[in-house]
Amino acid sequence: MLQQKHLLGLEGYPQEDIQAIIDTAFNFREVLDRPIKKVPSLQGITIVNLFFENSTRTRISFELAQKRLSADTVNFSASSSSLKKGESFKDTVQNIEAMKIDAVVMRHPAPGAPRHLTEFIDAVVINAGDGTHEHPTQAILDMMTLYEKFGKIKGLKIGIIGDISHSRVALSNIYGLISMGAEVILCGPAHLIPPYITDLGVKINYNLDEVLEWADALNVLRVQNERMGVGLIPSTREYRALFGITEERLEKHAKEIVIMHPGPMNRGVEIDSAVADSDQAIILDQVLNGVASRMAILYLLLGGKYEDKDIK
């Protein structure tokens, strides 16, 4: 069992619980390789996927994890327009809770929204991304994938490349990786790396080649299209020249560096196709591990009884 009732973020999250989730996720990973990819662990448990913002990938990954665990799931997508009309968040979620549900998986554009949700409902809350704050399940699947590749996380050198300021993936990864004993260097346009971020125990280096020379693995962040050409990022070619993970750039370095990306990718901007589709990229492993780690999180949070025969 985990020490906290909810999974709101990895800030201050117990290290041993991150480890427990990853260990359990590897067990579920075996389930996913079976012909019948389903276990009865969460039978009778009802989960609502409450998405106040579009995210097909994350929602499908959670939904699949829930189905593989035999939970009952309901999807609720609130258009952002109804939110803007002032429809009360509190009213929406209390209505949902009144229908007797066990857990809510929530994606919301506002930082802190999942914590806010816990003030109104008794169900377990899992943060599936809250604006520019955290995306803990993404960071856990990233760490699981590193674990799979390297057999450890402690001591790994990880570069996180791109727009750190607006990235929930970066923040959760920083908390998780630092807690698990990895070293982290942030690399991206200086004005997209927040001031004071080094207080979280990371270093900053604006020179991508130096980071490549240093790192065991890179987590390459998606460049948000809406930041492009509005003064934040001068142009695609400028970004690609300074921070793009290109074949030519990787060839300059003698070692084989592992490449991760949370998706969806902008091929030709932050990452070239030749790199994304190469053997050193473990991007599709991340997708599969996403389902396994979300199964582990749901299973551990919702008190599914651990039965060896189910998952081993």
């Binding site: 802190g112 520019t132 923040l171 004071y196 207080d199």
Partner: peptide
């Protein structure tokens, strides 16, 4: 306030 706390919370900072 733009600070390490705004970083922690993922909230846009006012410097």
């Amino acid at each position: 306030n733009e600070s390490v706390v705004s970083n922690h919370l993922g909230l846009p900072g006012n410097p």
